[in-house]
Every structure is written in structure tokens, then in C-alpha cells.
Simulated scan of single mutants.
Amino acid sequence: MRRLIASTFVSLDGIMQAPGGPEEDPTGGFTFGGWMFRYADESMDLSAAGFDGKDRELVLGRRTYEIFEAYWPYQPEDDPIAKTLNAAKKYVASRTLTALQWNNSTLLRGDVVQAIIALKSQPGPDLQIIGSGNLIHTLQAASLIDEYNVWTFPVVLGRGKRLFDGTAKPSALKLIRSQVSTTGVVMSTYIPEGDIRPGSFVNGEPSEKELARRKSMKKGTW
């Protein structure tokens, strides 16, 4: 079974909206589009993290597909990222689109979870999600994502669309790779590691103060 890999840029507070430019996605009154621009440097290997889709098939949400469709086919033919993305096979999750104009694009119809399960079971290269926050939310909740490439930029945005929201399935992750760019971007790769296993640093019996605090919590007065 082939893997499903998600790659995304996020701020320190987990915002993934419009990293590339002001007009990319200003929905919801988001005014910080292009927040990752000044942190780019030569140590960032976009291909290794799957951001160019090299040797993979793409799985995209509708909004990310439309952003890419309106940009990458119009870049110079010698642009290596454009060349790779334009040639890649693309699967698009959408309830509203009826036709896709970008070459090698296929619309995923019906339930997206079942569609991705079917794609993963087919022979072929690994599947790569780029951006596509709503799609990540759905597939993370269904435990279908096998690897996360998360590049965390040293900015706090305070508002915007988040990588993980209230629908996220609680789960543990294992860090398997990490590197820091010269501009302070932490480029990390995680894989799922099962359920969260809580514990406690508290030893011995709770004090009277602690028991009183817990009582206040139960009453809703803490």
C-alpha cells in the first residue's frame, strides 16, 4: 500500500493560510498573506519534503487546486517546480467542481475518505498532499495520513486557518527528521505513533490545597 504524505508551511501558532502571497487566500479578512516570503533560503529542500510533488501523485483540496491551476501552468517551462507539478498526476477533492482544466487532473467523486482508501490500495508512487487544510483535517481524522512534513516559521499570526483544528483526532506523532534553516525555519518530519499515552509528574497523595482546587474545578468555580 502506498503512503499518503502531507506537507505544509505553518506559523509558530499553527496557521497555514496564504503563506505565498497576499492574494493567495485573504478569506476571513486574513491580511498576512505572504508571511513566509522573507524566510526562504537555499537550505530549504522543497523536493525532499514533497512540496514539488516529485515522483509522487498529488492529492489536493479544491482551493489549493484552484490556486495552483491559476499559477503553475503559466510559469516558464524551465522552472523545475512548475515542470514537476504540471506533469504530475493530480487528484482533486471537491463537492463543487464539475470539470478540471489543469492537465493530468482527476476529480475525486463521492466520499473523499473512501476515495483515498481506494487510491492508497492501488499500485503507484506515494500520494502527496500540499497545503489543502480542509482535506488534511478530514484525512487526519480518518487516520489516513502516513507522514507529515511541517515547516514551522518563526512568526505568530494570531488568526487564520490552522493545520489542526477542533476536528483533529488526538494522536501521538514521532519525529523522524528535523533541520533548521539559516533563517530559523524548523523543517520537521513526523509519522503517526498511535494513541496519546497520558501520565503524571505528581507523586504521593494530593495536599488539602490540591483537593480543594479539584473540588472548585468540579463546581465550575475555579
Score class of each variant (00 low, 15 high):
residue 221 T to P: 08
residue 103 N to E: 15
residue 160 G to V: 03
residue 105 S to V: 08
residue 74 Y to H: 12
residue 40 A to K: 15
residue 33 G to M: 01
residue 83 K to M: 00
residue 97 L to T: 07
residue 71 Y to I: 09
residue 145 I to N: 14
residue 183 T to V: 06
residue 76 P to W: 01
residue 111 D to Y: 06
residue 158 G to N: 10
residue 173 L to W: 04
residue 201 F to G: 15
residue 217 M to V: 03
residue 196 I to L: 12
residue 113 V to K: 12
residue 131 G to W: 04
residue 138 T to P: 12
residue 146 D to Y: 03
residue 151 W to M: 04
residue 205 E to T: 10
residue 145 I to E: 10
residue 174 K to R: 12
residue 78 D to M: 01
residue 209 K to A: 15
residue 199 G to L: 01
residue 87 A to D: 12
residue 90 K to D: 05
residue 81 I to W: 08
residue 108 L to Q: 02
residue 190 Y to K: 09
residue 88 A to T: 07
residue 147 E to L: 05
residue 115 A to H: 11
residue 55 D to S: 07
residue 137 H to W: 01
residue 35 W to I: 07
residue 86 N to T: 05
residue 174 K to M: 00
residue 106 T to W: 01
residue 123 P to F: 03
residue 161 K to W: 03
residue 36 M to P: 10
residue 180 V to S: 06
residue 43 S to T: 15
residue 13 D to W: 12
residue 205 E to D: 12
residue 111 D to A: 11
residue 11 S to Q: 13
residue 185 V to D: 02
residue 205 E to A: 13
residue 51 F to S: 09
residue 197 R to C: 11
residue 201 F to P: 15
residue 30 F to S: 05
residue 107 L to I: 04
residue 210 E to T: 09
residue 24 E to N: 04
residue 103 N to A: 14
residue 1 M to D: 10
residue 60 L to V: 03
residue 105 S to Q: 09
residue 121 S to G: 15
residue 3 R to C: 09
residue 11 S to D: 02
residue 37 F to V: 13
residue 146 D to N: 12
residue 208 E to Q: 10
residue 45 D to N: 14
residue 35 W to T: 13
residue 52 D to I: 09
residue 125 P to G: 08
residue 133 G to P: 14
residue 74 Y to G: 10
residue 123 P to C: 07
residue 35 W to D: 03
